[in-house]
């Protein structure tokens, strides 16, 4: 009745994880530079709409993609302007942007399409699915891993890209130093504000792909408030992954897995109310277990440090 170990199930998990993964990478860049980007939800929602509109009116997927990226970066830029330059509280600005995006996207959709529910009336384009040569011929693995949307592969590449950027490039080092200790960074001549601005813009760029995945790959239309909390889940995933790209990949996949399990659980008669909690509760449990593990690790470290420093006293 409920069969989780099928290639189709893993295909679903990957599909569900993709938008969260993009946004979680966006969250990592921000948290490494010391800003909390709570506006990911609105970045995704805005990009989901502007991507659809740009592709619909230009009938060109590339222009659609640029439109989506600009939409996401516009929100990220607004967040940066208000918080970094006008010194408003970044959490409050983020909340304001999230609230504005829900109504704002409906308004913009109404202006351009005359509809307030979804953009069915304009012919927007979708990103293509990709079959990977050789991989697709491997029996089980091929079914699960090949044939995904091109954005899914881009999401996986973005994990490597973010890791490379943060740990192997000079700018990545600067960005991390700004996050670790802004005063020290300033003392060596780094423009902290500018670095944070760049971090927010990169997160707007990555978050935009998460949004476009929703409306131009997952579904073929934008519908009101369609991001439905995925921006917040990716913040949790980034935090669970300790802002490490690969740890976050695991955390996002874990959420994708639990979400996909919840789709199957309903079918075997487990009440919808309980099933609906599964992905979120599992994230909380994951966070608690991880925090405990970290704490015990920390204790051991301090203990061994003490032992080394003063073996007699311990």
């Amino acid at each position: 009745m409920i069969n989780l170990l099928t290639p189709e199930f893993f295909f679903t998990v990957i599909r569900v994880t993709t938008p969260i993964l993009f946004a979680a990478m966006a969250a990592i860049i921000c948290s490494k530079s010391g800003v909390i980007n709570i506006a990911l939800e609105s970045i995704m929602l805005t990009a989901a709409l502007t991507g659809v509109l740009a592709s619909g009116f230009s009938q060109n997927i590339f222009i659609g993609m640029v439109g989506g990226i600009l939409g996401g970066m516009f929100i990220a830029g607004a967040l940066a302007y208000f918080s970094l330059y006008l010194k408003a509280d970044i959490i409050l600005v983020g909340i304001a942007l999230n609230l504005m995006a829900v109504g704002g996207t409906v308004f913009v959709m109404f202006v351009f399409t005359g509809d307030r529910g979804s953009t069915n009336s304009i012919r927007s384009l979708q990103f293509p699915d990709v079959n990977i040569p050789l991989l697709q011929d491997i029996p089980v693995v091929g079914t699960a891993l090949s044939g995904h949307n091109i954005l899914t592969y881009l999401a996986i590449l973005s994990v490597i890209g973010v890791w490379f950027f943060l740990s192997k490039t000079t700018y990545g080092l600067r960005l991390r130093s700004v996050g670790e200790n802004p005063d020290a960074a300033t003392s060596v001549g780094i423009d902290v504000r500018k670095v944070k601005l760049v971090a927010l813009l990169i997160s707007g760029f990555l978050g935009a792909f998460g949004g476009m995945y929703m409306s131009m790959a997952y579904l073929s239309v934008f519908s009101t408030n369609m991001v439905a909390g995925r921006g917040f889940i990716s913040l949790a995933a980034a935090s669970m992954g300790q802002a490490n790209p690969f740890g976050t990949l695991l955390a996002a996949s874990f959420f994708g897995l639990m979400e996909s399990v919840s789709y199957q659980l309903q079918a075997i008669g487990i009440p919808a109310q309980i099933v609906g909690m599964v992905p979120y509760v599992s994230v909380i449990i994951g966070l608690v277990l991880y925090a405990q593990y970290q704490q015990s690790l920390q204790k051991k470290k301090t203990l061994s440090k003490q032992l080394k420093e003063d073996p007699n006293e311990a």
Binding site: M226, A228, Y263, A272, G276
Partner: peptide
């Protein structure tokens, strides 16, 4: 199945 809301069209598709 129940989506748990009236906006998450992606979850509607998955279910």
């Amino acid at each position: 199945s129940y989506i748990g809301g009236f906006v998450d069209s992606a979850r509607g598709k998955e279910l």
